[in-house]
């Protein structure tokens, strides 16, 4: 019998085509029906063609057997993105009442090798659903994320497991480890938001703690978009909006005073000005004049590739101020 490692070149010589296997003698292979002038054709290997000829044959009858299960293993190894192979394999696993824990181990090895393949993650998810056993999932995703900390599939699987089985405990600590490794890891910042949003929510205390955490990291690396974005996300939950949290405005002003000109710093002050001007003011720090100076700095020096955008922001603000002035004059 072949096994999944039949893909290895070292085993290539021992590999026996299905047409030469005694246990498949009773099956007539079925050819693929492609047209004479093929479109986007692939030069299949003999092994691929042979395997799929038998695959078509067993699918035709929907054979539920050990040999069909073994065949899906080879078929999946030759093309792990073939969702029909995986669906049929699951139908066989169910039909034969197989040990699904063994299947978890099997798919784990493939996921680790091919961690950007939708089908293998989906197979994993269905098995976990069937077993109602998420105990190995955090570890699996951590293994994958150790190699690529931003792997979208791994994060998606991890969030699904955490939400479905309420496994939020310890997740913030994990996020902390990742952010200590790389404070620019946007996936980890997103996970931080996900955890809080689905557990405590952004209560006043949590908000205060998170603002401290974020400002600490934003100060260490001031050109880190992820941290600034997270800060803006936090302030969505602040009743005062973007521009009225004292801790944040102090931080921002001090950073600016210190001579820092991170484009993200300048941008948030521009937005604070927008908010204050829109609200009818209140804080004289955040004036049209200040917004104008900052936009001009962004245009001329600190964010030149988005110069047209900052010009647009400035024009919009100036014309809205003019409209307001016009409206109040005509109202008098």
């Amino acid at each position: 019998m072949s096994d999944y490692s039949s893909d290895d070149e070292s085993n290539e010589e021992q590999y026996v085509l299905y047409k030469d296997r005694p246990e498949w003698k009773d099956v007539t292979p079925v050819k693929q029906d492609d047209i004479d002038e093929p479109v986007v054709a692939i030069d299949y290997t003999k092994k691929f063609e042979d395997c799929y000829d038998y695959f078509r044959a067993v699918v035709q009858k929907k054979e539920i057997s050990e040999r069909a299960l073994e065949l899906t293993q080879t078929a999946a190894c030759l093309n792990s993105a073939n969702y029909t192979v995986w669906q049929y394999r699951r139908d066989i696993l169910k039909g034969l009442n197989k040990d699904l824990h063994a299947e978890l181990d099997f798919i784990e090895k493939i996921i680790i090798k091919q961690s950007k393949n939708y089908q293998v993650w989906h197979h994993r998810r269905v098995l976990v659903e069937w077993l109602q056993d998420p105990v190995k999932e955090k570890h699996l995703t951590e293994t994958v994320l150790a190699k690529d900390a931003k792997n979208y599939h791994a994060w998606q699987h991890r969030q699904w497991v955490i939400k479905t089985f309420k496994l939020f405990d310890g997740e913030l600590e994990y996020v902390n480890t990742l952010l200590t490794d790389d404070v620019r890891n946007n996936s980890a910042w997103n996970q931080r938001y996900f955890v809080i949003n689905n557990t405590t929510g952004f209560t006043e205390d949590v908000l205060d703690r998170e603002i401290d955490y974020t400002l600490f990291h934003a100060k260490a690396v001031t050109e880190n978009e992820s941290a600034w974005n997270y800060l803006r996300g936090l302030l969505l939950h602040d009743k005062g909006g973007l521009s009225k949290n004292k801790k944040v405005t102090e931080f921002v002003e001090n950073l600016y005073e210190s001579g820092n000109r991170s484009p993200f710093l300048l941008a948030i002050i521009v937005d604070m000005c927008y908010e204050q001007i829109g609200d009818g003011g209140g804080d004289s720090k955040y004036s049209l004049q200040r917004a104008k100076e900052l936009c001009e700095a962004l245009i001329g020096k600190y964010d030149t590739i988005r110069a047209n955008y900052w010009q647009h922001m400035l024009d919009t603000l100036q014309s809205s101020c003019k409209d307001e002035a016009g409206a109040s004059t005509s109202g008098n």
């Binding site: 692939i42 030069d43 299949y44 290997t45 691929f48 030759l78 093309n79 792990s80 993105a81 073939n82 969702y83 029909t84």
Partner: peptide, 8 residues
């Protein structure tokens, strides 16, 4: 044949 993973 290396493109066989695109077969589907």
């Amino acid at each position: 044949s290396s493109q066989s993973t695109m077969d589907t």
